[in-house]
Amino acid sequence: MSRTATVSRLSKRERNVREPLRSFFTAAWLGWQIESNWTDPFLFAVYSIIKPIAGAAILVVMYGIITRGAFESPLFVYIYLGNAFYIYVGSVMNGVSWAVIDDREHYKTLKYIYIAPIHAPFYLVGRGVARFLTATISVLVTITAGMLFLNLQLDLGTVNWPMFLAALALGVILLANMGLMLAGVTLMIAHHVWFIGDAVAGALYLFSGAIFPLEVLPNWLRPVGFAMPLTYWLELLRRALVGQVAESFPTLSHVSNGQLFGILLGLTAIFGIMGIIMFRWCEHQARERGLIDRVTNY
């Protein structure tokens, strides 16, 4: 009897670990297939290059016509790198939240996912992995183009790689949690608000200091920027990649790297807890209202 109970407890413990991981990896593979196999590899590569380059080029033209091509300025490096890494924000958040619409209204499989032994939050985060991978290609292409054609002041030999990788990993976890919140909201809204991830990312563009230092914002808006974890994430990435450039802007110059990591870690934990609570609440509401299998494409 006690052996059975032990086995039962072990099985339960194993289930608690294995099921979420299985859901995550299966969803990641499924997401990659959906994202990449719609065309041949060449067209997929072109698609992955044009979009980020065009996004960066808008800012480059804006900057170039006003400063008459002063691309060696620290402000340009600040803007260019912030914009490049911001690609992750829209991609990961949209990847996680879009999976709800895709599965509910396109493939009409969300109801089957809910009756299968699948861990829904891990499944949705897994679906966002494919967008993380394509975003990584976009970020690399954007930075490479900046170094090759715009004389972007980035010396790969002086990059603090451990700091960079740690900040990047922490940021991606943060973005996945934010995406989970949006996925919860998406469960409750109609298809015509499918762009929620891009819309929220676009709005946070204003407050995160991605493309201009927070000092440019009016005084009454700056606290919003300081409450955003993305502000600290982008600052850490800049410090890891171009430490001297990052230090030339006063926004967070009084905060050490360790303190920045501490703040980012704390905010990531808070957003993680909020993400789970919010997703579960929205999910419960969606089940109560019969929204899991609705089709709302007008």
């Binding site: 006003i66 400063t67 402000l75 803007i79 762009f195 204003l206």
Partner: peptide, 26 residues
């Protein structure tokens, strides 16, 4: 479904504002 008013009007306004502040920054 009126949530689009928030996501389709208010949030894009913030995104556009970001480009305004880029011009102000330079």
């Amino acid at each position: 479904e009126k949530s689009w008013m928030f996501f389709d009007i208010f949030l894009p306004l913030l995104a556009v504002s970001a480009y305004v502040f880029v011009y102000r920054a330079i």
